[in-house]
């Protein structure tokens, strides 16, 4: 697939090898989720997060957040993009994923482990996200999620 994905990489003003910022606009097409995840994860081949957490926690969390933004935020609208911004520092990595949608109330999402929901195909994304990272926060509008992975 020819990709319009362009990763912007900036060293932070603080210097240091593990301090950098990444930004990436992802078209609202689920086929870009995997390539977008790899572009970002490759930047963590050494440094602040352990290889195991990069392979599993970082990749899965990025895939969940970007896919949710494309599907539920932008409703697959090809005119909209999902903005991903990553701030990597010595203590933690913060990932902001923002869509152009109207937002949602994360507290209203039911627990996918309930007996009546366990055999459903969808509805696990937010639960999986919360279990993979150290902290999850939303902006007031509910169209931007911030994921924090502490160093290690």
């Amino acid at each position: 697939m020819t990709t319009p994905l362009r990763l912007d990489v900036r060293r932070s003003a603080r210097g240091g090898e593990s301090d950098f910022e990444l930004s990436l606009d992802v078209p609202s097409d689920l086929d870009y989720v995997g390539p977008a995840v790899e572009l970002i994860a490759e930047r963590f081949s050494r440094g602040v997060l352990s290889p195991r957490r990069v392979r599993f926690n970082l990749r899965t969390a990025l895939a969940e957040a970007i896919a949710n933004a494309i599907a539920y935020g932008n409703h697959h609208d090809p005119r909209q993009v999902v903005q991903v911004r990553v701030e990597a520092g010595r203590q933690a990595v913060h990932i902001h994923v923002t869509d152009a949608g109207a937002g949602f109330d994360p507290a209203a999402v039911p627990d996918p482990r309930l007996p009546g929901r366990l055999e459903r195909e969808d509805g696990r994304g937010l639960f999986v996200l919360r279990s993979l990272v150290d902290h999850v926060a939303f902006n007031a509008a509910g169209n931007s999620i911030c994921l924090t992975l502490r160093a290690g």
């Binding site: 392979r55 599993f56 990749r59 899965t60 895939a63 969940e64 896919a67 055999e119 459903r120 195909e121 969808d122 696990r124 994304g125 639960f127 999986v128």
Partner: peptide
């Protein structure tokens, strides 16, 4: 396999059924 997201889990649930 390196990683599976919630959609991947969902497809396994659906196939199993």
């Amino acid at each position: 396999t390196g990683y599976i997201d919630s959609s991947g889990l969902g497809v396994l649930v659906s196939l199993s059924k």
